[in-house]
Design a protein around this nucleic acid. Structure first.
Lengths: 200, 200, 200, 200
DNA sequence: CATGAATGAGACTTCATTCAT
DNA sequence: CATGAATGAAGTCTCATTCAT
């Protein structure tokens, strides 16, 4: 029988699902998707292996759940920025803080960029979902740039946004590995500079 | 008993080792390190499973071998550029072609960037090796920039090079997925533009 | 602690037990004993999984309950026939309708014949119970034949009855799969004919 | 990767595949398909669990292999009878020995009739295969009857053959359980009698 | 009585690696 | 050198059953 994935109703149950998600998140981050197994996730979450499969179809399913949550956060943050932008005069300052925020946010996505290209090959669902997310964020980003440079049409804006996203994402992994706080700040400044120079 | 890894001496044997490396390369690229198994590699190479372990200690070992070869190519190419640079006046033109070449070369490294962050956690050897490579390439790149802007000292050159490398690497995966040839060219142009603007 | 199996006393509770039995019956019939799980039965019955174990010791226990009910029906039907037989002159006509009735009744037992041979190996209880049932029905059937052919002693009557029972049981599965109503009737006629010819 | 099921080439390997099939056959017969697991089969065959999956896709695959072999035997035997029939005058004697032979042969199929109805629901492949077999055997049987009663057209021959097959199959399980040899002979006689009377 | 979350043993399956030939 | 059959540990997943609420 195709076991239904239940949506926990009791409070304690919801907490356990959260524990599983948190445990999975940490382990994926630490050791990668392919070096983490469901038993391990359950153990770290303090629940039994079986419970894992009460809440998630398989390992890719909990991955998707995490991806989903982080993406949602990213949407919200990006939308908030767009709003702020329309009320603020110094567009570039806003843009800069937008980049900074994004880089920070991406710390939570680092592990995904370790494995997602491979996972996508195995689980088409995740590939589709991830692409959809990306398109949506890109759309928001394009709106942002259009608002700033409202009069002139930016050439290749689509490609530019794609590249910016890729570049931001990739560089986070770099930044996340830097221990020294001063170096971290320098890196972030440089990346903001890179993107800013590129766009204007 | 720890089976010794032999270095094939006969011509036919050397060819078989090559076949294994090529097969592994294609499969890693296509499906990722973790979704490729040794039996599959041997099959694609047209040899027996056992032979795989005559030439490689384990799966990470053939990965390392591939990494090694590609890195070596990258060294050579970078060194050749440095040489060309010292004989050419239009430094920026050279730089541009350097970027283009690099992006092309990275097509061969795409698969590595899919999995290496995770593999590094599992096989420390590979992590160290990869970091060493990266440092070496960065060193070459720094020399390059120093030659061009010989008079003025570029601030944060170390960080800049790190970021450029990361950015190039990340964007290749993007480019490698584009089917349409015109779009591909546009993307490459944009990335060269991004890096060029950033550096000068 | 061995949870005691309660006999439900309240009306609503009795209904729930009925729902479980009906659900189990349908699922066993549809997918077989080994491909049906207790959670599924509870879900189809519209009750919780836990309740299942309030009323039944384990999965074999609900199977036994179903077996019991159907067997009981079969007893009653057979006994009624014996009674009718003693008041009717055209014995063969009665016998024929007896066969027809039996074949119909067996529709409810089809699922049992799918799995019972295997279940018996695992749950000795059920094996014993089923054999006891069979003996009892056979006894009734033998009485029936003896009444009809009261004067002459039928040779191998025991074996004959055993074979008839087996044959009827097996052929029902066949009949139950036939969609076309006319074909169904033809099949039933043929089986009645087979058994009738055999006995007289 | 979809692991290819290899066809063993070395002699020793072929023997091991045979061992697995024999072990599976015995266990299925003894405890039924659903109470037998792959580890157990491997153990009884004296090989490792992994080897099971070198030769068979899953448990249903080895079941299919066994089904296939027995069906093949049945074809051969039935064809031989058809041949004998055309050269022999006392058709009924041949027919009788045909039934006897069939009943004997079916001893090897007993376990299949324990589980196949349920297995068919789970593995459509096996259902299709089994139905195809059945149709083929029925066809042979119909030819047989047509040869015997060449002049007159037997009414409902299709249905009759279906019923005979079902009846023979079902009764074997009965016969296979009888310990006493005399009783066994009596049972076989009775079943031959049942079928003979039915057909002529 | 009723719920459904939780358990964990055990089945299914894969695959890196070894080894007899 | 080369083969590919064989191994078995480890991962994936299911489900009968229990138990706190």
């Amino acid at each position: 029988m195709q076991q239904n994935i239940r949506e926990p109703k009791q409070k304690r149950a919801i907490e356990k699902k959260e524990c599983l998600i948190n445990a999975a998140f940490e382990l994926f981050n630490e050791k990668g998707f392919y070096n983490t197994n469901s038993k391990e996730i359950a153990k770290k979450a303090g629940v039994s292996t079986g419970l894992f499969y009460n809440y998630f179809k398989d390992k890719s399913d909990i991955f998707l759940e995490i991806l989903n949550r982080i993406s949602h956060k990213r949407y919200l943050k990006t939308e908030k920025f767009l709003d702020k932008l329309s009320k603020e005069n110094d567009k570039r300052k806003v843009l800069k803080s937008f980049f900074i925020e994004n880089i920070k946010l991406l710390s939570e996505l680092a592990f995904i960029y370790k494995d997602i290209e491979t996972i996508k090959k195995e689980y088409k669902e995740i590939g589709k979902y991830n692409d959809k997310n990306k398109q949506y964020i890109k759309k928001l980003m394009m709106d942002l740039f259009n608002k700033i440079n409202s009069k002139e049409n930016i050439e290749n804006l689509d490609i530019k946004c794609e590249i910016i996203m890729t570049t931001i994402d990739a560089n986070y992994i770099l930044i996340s590995k830097i221990e020294n706080q001063d170096d971290k700040v320098k890196f972030i400044d440089e990346i903001v500079c890179l993107i800013h120079d590129y766009m204007f």
